[in-house]
Each structure stands twice: as structure tokens, then as C-alpha cells.
């Protein structure tokens, strides 16, 4: 365990110092991020522009969902994308061999090797938006709501990670899978809006098949005080299932790894 924590610290300090080379990029990312948030809030405002509602979601409540999405997107950009989009290169160039030989869990190494600070402002902004808008809905947030929110957010992050890792694992067979992560990203973009905004058939799909609902809508409901223990329990269950699935699938995929070009 200690070895893992030590490795993690080394990974991230080296990654940060490498990234500081590109400070100008950081500025661009910041502008792009603000533009994205502005644009999505504008689109959301069009839904509410003529006194319409999304299900029983008010404007501020929908902003909480937007905030959770922004937060998760930041986590994707900081932790998931820089690591998991690299797996394809390790497979193609055969350098995955070196990773497998290291005396450390290969899934851990591949998932935590680097971070990209460009998503950090997005994480902060997402948090601020969640706090600000949920405060406006309920006039002061209860401590226990926050505690439950953090649990469900944690489950959401685990589910999100497992999905990314599952898709990234398929690179063992298909060498160009980062398009598949683009498909995943496109579908996950549906999490910008509360799941109640979708037609019933899609709602079912987003709850049971591809649990987008548990990524953004459920955490938002928790902090808004709509606490539903069944939903909390389900998201815990989903996160355990998907995480174990990702570990199992990686071990399974490795059996087919044939070490290219080395």
C-alpha cells in the first residue's frame, strides 16, 4: 500500500512539472472551459425560456446537474483522459511489456501514471456551481445532504472510471480504440441534463444500461435533499459491479496481448 502511495506522489509531481512547460496551454484551456460552461448554460436557459420546466426540475436545480457534469468532466480531463488514452500507444508500440514487468499492479500504473492540471479549474468551477445553485434552491445546505452527496459523487466517479477503463481495455484487440472513447464521451454528454428531460425509453437506457443517471442526476438529487436510499444503494451497487468488471476485463484482455513490434 505504501509503495502505491509513494508511486502516486512521484507520478503526479513529475507530471505537474512536465505540464508547467505548457503554461500558455493552460490559459487556452481556461478560456475554452469558460466558453463551454457559458454555452451549456445558455442552451439550458433556452429550455426554460418560455416558462417551461424539465420534469419537476427548476432552473437552479438543473444548474446543479450542470455543475456535477462540469465537475466530472474536469475529473475526466485531469485523471482519466491523459492516462487511458495512452494505453493504445503502449499496445501499438509494444511498450506495454515494460508496464507489465513492473512490480506494481498494471491497471494501477496505467490509470494513475500522469495527471493533466488543465481540468483542475473545471473541477473547482463545477464545485462552485453545485454549491451556489443548491444553496439557492434550499436556502442553506444541510450537512447530511453534503455527506450523502459526496458518497454518491464518489460512486459516480468510480462508475465513470470503470467505463473509460473498460473501453480503453479493448485496445488490446482493436488498436485504434480512442474513437470508442469518443463515442462514450458523446453519450455521456447526455448527462448535462437531468435524466427526466429524456423520453421514457431513453430514461430507462440511461438508468439501467448505461447509467448516466447515476453520474449526474442522482448526486444532484442528493445535494438538493431528494434523498432516496434505494438510488443511493443502487449507485453503490453499480460502482462495485462496474469496478470489478473493469478489473476482471483487464485481466481477461491481457491474455490476448501479443506484444507488438518488440
Amino acid at each position: 500500500m505504501k509503495r502505491y502511495l509513494l508511486s502516486l506522489r512521484l507520478f503526479w509531481t513529475t507530471a505537474l512539472s512536465a505540464q508547467l512547460e505548457y503554461r500558455f496551454n493552460f490559459l487556452i484551456e481556461l478560456i475554452a472551459m469558460l466558453g463551454t460552461l457559458l454555452g451549456s448554460v445558455f442552451i439550458l436557459s433556452l429550455f426554460f425560456s418560455h416558462g417551461n420546466k424539465i420534469g419537476d426540475w427548476t432552473w437552479e436545480a438543473a444548474l446543479v446537474v450542470q455543475g456535477v457534469y462540469t465537475l466530472l468532466d474536469g475529473i475526466t480531463n485531469t485523471f482519466l483522459k491523459p492516462n487511458l488514452s495512452e494505453i493504445v500507444n503502449y499496445v501499438r508500440e509494444g511498450t506495454l511489456d515494460f508496464v507489465l514487468l513492473k512490480p506494481i499492479d498494471s491497471q494501477f500504473w496505467l490509470s494513475t501514471r500522469t495527471i493533466s492540471p488543465s481540468g483542475l479549474p473545471e473541477i473547482c468551477l463545477g464545485f462552485s456551481l453545485i454549491i451556489w445553485s443548491s444553496n439557492r434552491v434550499s436556502n442553506g445546505i444541510h450537512f447530511d445532504h453534503i455527506a450523502i452527496f459526496i458518497i454518491s459523487l464518489f460512486c459516480a466517479i468510480i462508475i465513470l472510471y470503470s467505463f473509460w477503463f473498460l473501453i480503453a481495455s479493448t485496445t488490446i484487440w482493436f488498436v485504434k480504440t480512442w474513437n470508442a472513447t469518443e463515442v462514450l464521451r458523446a453519450v455521456l454528454a447526455s448527462g448535462r441534463y437531468p435524466v427526466a428531460a429524456y423520453p421514457p425509453s431513453l430514461r430507462l437506457f440511461f438508468t439501467l444500461v448505461l447509467p448516466v443517471a447515476f453520474l449526474t442526476t442522482v448526486p444532484a438529487q442528493m445535494i438538493l435533499g431528494n434523498i432516496n436510499l434505494l438510488k443511493l444503494f443502487t449507485s453503490l451497487l453499480f460502482s462495485i459491479i462496474f469496478f470489478n468488471l473493469s478489473r476482471y476485463f483487464w485481466k481477461f484482455a491481457l491474455r490476448f496481448y501479443t506484444s507488438a513490434s518488440s
Binding site: N52, I54, N179, A186, A189, S190, Y193, A197, L202
Partner: peptide, 29 residues
């Protein structure tokens, strides 16, 4: 070909938006 099929599929965003707009009754506005 498979990669390009996946690229084509990653363009589904308009369909997600379509399901949102039809459901929200803002269409007439």
C-alpha cells in the same frame, strides 16, 4: 472501417438533443 464507423457513431449528439427538445415541449416556442 471499424474506426470510421465509430467516428460516425460519435456524431450522435444531434439525436440526443432531438430527444431533449421534443420531450420538453419547447418545440412550438
Amino acid at each position: 472501417r471499424i474506426e470510421i464507423a465509430l467516428w460516425a457513431l460519435s456524431g450522435i449528439l444531434p439525436f440526443i438533443m432531438l430527444s431533449l427538445w421534443t420531450e420538453s415541449n419547447t418545440a412550438n416556442t
